[in-house]
Amino acid sequence: MSELKVSEVSKSFGEKKVLQSVSFSVKEGEFVSLLGPSGSGKSTLFHLIGGLYTPDEGELYLGGENINGKRGKISYTPQSPSLFPWRTVLDNVVLGEELHAKPNKERASAMLERAGLADYVNAYPHQLSGGMRQRAAFVRSLLSPQPFICLDEPFSALDEFTRLDMQKWLLSIWEENRKSVLFVTHNIEEAIYLSERVLVLSSNPATVKREFTIPFERPRREELVLTEEFLDWKKQIYHELRSEA
């Protein structure tokens, strides 16, 4: 069971209210994107789900269990890959698993192979390109025992070409596993291309402004991003994002 329910969550830091009764849910096996401008409290929301902070008001549930302030309930891919430089790629990707159980290195090797990192299993992170590092970081989340994955703008530091490749790659590998995913981004196209639903956040304080259900079928093809329909969604979401300004 890996349904995430965020119910009326608010959080302030001192005088500043960052989140204002945020509510949404991510169903089992669903890919949901949170879209919002920088500084809209997306990261704070992640920290709440990850249990680093507790909400001032509201509740967080994962698979029916209250996870307010509980760490280690989700698996997480940070904005920077945060691979440990002294560990080989293989030892890095089993880290999430290692924290909770004995790691299964054979499964990890197989997963790295499917991620296109077969030649780098025993390499060190500094020998990898930015895209490869980010892929390794995502494989680490997939191998973690938690059924729910949070991705925090994982491709924001990559160049446009690498980013497109990574999105395609992410979808292909996700479709094999179908873990529930919450994906944070400030890129509209990325959100539409990847997700079942896109949640648009307002800023200061953040709240879920509107929810778009993206009807495109899976598996999604790369050409999708050039279709009229896709651009139509992009426009709609763009206007929604800009409307408050």
Partner: peptide, 15 residues
């Protein structure tokens, strides 16, 4: 210690 790595460890539920 690198703050991002530490952050990852805490998010991943490390003691």
């Amino acid at each position: 210690t690198n703050a991002e790595m530490k952050h990852y460890m805490y998010m991943a539920g490390a003691s």
